[in-house]
């Protein structure tokens, strides 16, 4: 009854927002991101390039959190899966002459198949064992990319045609913002449905979930397949944006980057990683480029932030937001932060 009442109380704007899984502040943030490249310091090409990288990490961290935050399995080979999608897409464009847009989807499909395989073989494993299995899988895939020189040109890297035939980074920026939002939206829709509940049940206690009639096989494999498909499409974007693809992209340290952002953002929130990625990765890029005589300093800061967050605030940014910012006294402000609920 309550939910029906709430539906009736909502006006159409709120209803649309709710369908789009946004709060008013979320909408404001999205609009800010969309007009950002027209505001002076951000309209330079090299800053836009950093922002695109931020967007890529943001979208990856959403897809990563879909597995890590819900069914509680860290997919430690996530970047290798994305790299598979990137390579598939790039090779299809180069060798079969497909349009990059269709190839990106094909990359997503190939990564989904990889995710299906990882999901299937890790079914009997839990926790850290499943994480290690996906890690070994990632190492094996990266080793293949390095050694199959006849196909991937190995460490020399593939030259990949770009998605848009311009030198400008503007269209890429808007595309990645749309991809970030779409990734979030799809994951959120799935998580909001009955499936999300099943995911959380499996993540918290698999035996209890099985006792209450949830089939872990289907949900775990589905979750892996979906998050890997997302990674594959994003990997295709990465390949067709940078125009060069090396096996370095699949390295564990890249997965660590995504993982750090996802956890600093807050596990199990989906939006936390996406929100944190923009300021955080952007600052890291500034540190990296301004203090280039101190190589590695940005990663030192990076690691320190990860360590401090893990020790003192394991809930991450989303937990902080929920406990300290979300419930202000002012009603208008509360509407702005939460949207119309209950």
């Amino acid at each position: 009854m309550d939910t029906i009442k709430n539906e009736l109380q909502m006006n159409s704007f709120d209803r649309v927002l709710d369908k789009l899984c946004l709060t008013p502040i979320g909408l404001a943030g999205l609009i800010l991101l969309l007009i950002l490249p027209f505001i002076p310091p951000f309209n330079q090409e090299y800053i836009l390039r950093w922002l695109i990288y931020c967007g890529f990490i943001a979208a990856m961290s959403v897809g990563f959190d879909f597995t890590a935050g819900y069914i509680n399995i860290v997919n430690f080979g996530y970047m290798a899966v994305a790299g598979t999608g990137g390579y598939t897409s790039a090779l299809l464009v180069i060798n079969a002459g497909l349009s990059p847009w269709i190839a990106m989807v094909a990359g997503g499909v190939s990564s989904a198949i990889l995710g299906l395989v990882i999901g299937m073989i890790s079914l009997r494993l839990r926790g850290i064992f499943a994480a290690c299995l996906s890690w070994f899988f990632g190492l094996a895939v990266m080793g293949l990319a390095v050694k199959m020189v006849w196909l991937t040109r190995g460490p020399l890297g593939l030259r990949v045609p770009r998605l848009f035939e311009t030198e400008s980074n503007f269209p890429f920026y808007f595309l990645i913002i749309i991809l970030v939002y779409l990734t979030y939206l799809i994951c959120k829709w799935v998580v909001r449905s009955k499936m999300g509940l099943a995911f959380q049940a499996i993540g918290q206690n698999m035996d209890a979930a099985r006792t209450s009639g949830i089939d872990p096989v289907f949900y775990r494999v589905f979750n892996f397949t979906m998050s890997c498909a997302i990674a594959g499409v994003l990997g295709g974007f990465y390949a067709h944006f940078y125009g060069i693809l090396t096996p370095d992209m699949m390295h564990t340290s890249k997965t660590v980057e995504v993982l750090a952002v996802a956890y600093i953002g807050g596990r199990g929130s989906l939006w936390g990683g996406a929100v944190v990625a923009f300021p955080f990765i952007f600052l890291m890029e500034i540190v990296r480029s301004t203090l280039s005589n101190l190589p590695g300093l940005n990663l030192v800061i990076y690691a320190l932030v990860l360590i401090l967050v893990m020790i003192y605030y394991p809930g991450g940014f989303s937990y902080f937001y929920d406990t300290h910012i979300r419930q202000p006294k002012n009603r208008a402000l509360r509407y702005f932060l939460n949207g119309r609920d209950v």
Partner: peptide, 18 residues
């Protein structure tokens, strides 16, 4: 287990870059 694992991931990145 998971928290300490992520902590060691951070430690690894930290020591490599130091």
């Amino acid at each position: 287990v998971m928290n300490s694992f992520l902590l060691t991931v951070g430690l690894s990145v930290l020591l490599i870059n130091l």
